[in-house]
């Protein structure tokens, strides 16, 4: 991960921390659904929060493959780059 990725990762960890069950460490490979119990409704809200924070739009077409925190960071990075 580059420094900016690292920053994005840390910022996103801040946003998902409220989902994390006690004792679960947030890592890039942490899965949103299985490790953090983020269901589809919560994931929608989370993505909207992230979109607001970075002033980007993450098309829902790209969410289908999103599993882990690392995937989410990559989506944000991609959108920031395309901007």
């Amino acid at each position: 991960m580059t420094t900016t990725d690292d920053t994005i990762f840390r910022e996103i960890c801040g946003l998902v921390a409220r989902f994390a069950p006690a004792g679960v460490q947030l890592r890039p490979e942490t899965e949103l659904a299985s490790d953090l119990n983020v269901d589809s409704v919560a994931a929608m809200d989370l993505v909207m929060e992230i979109e607001d924070k970075y002033e980007i739009d993450i098309p829902i077409n790209q969410l289908a493959d999103m599993r882990s925190l690392g995937d989410l960071v990559e989506l944000v990075r991609q959108q920031l780059k395309d901007r």
Binding site: M48, D57, P59, N61
Partner: peptide, 22 residues
């Protein structure tokens, strides 16, 4: 198509998103 979702019944959110359109 590319699909962007905006907050329910929120024209301001739509406005912000359309402003970012390429």
């Amino acid at each position: 198509a590319k699909v962007v979702r905006f907050r329910h019944n929120d024209p301001e959110d739509l406005d912000r998103r359309l402003a970012r359109q390429q």
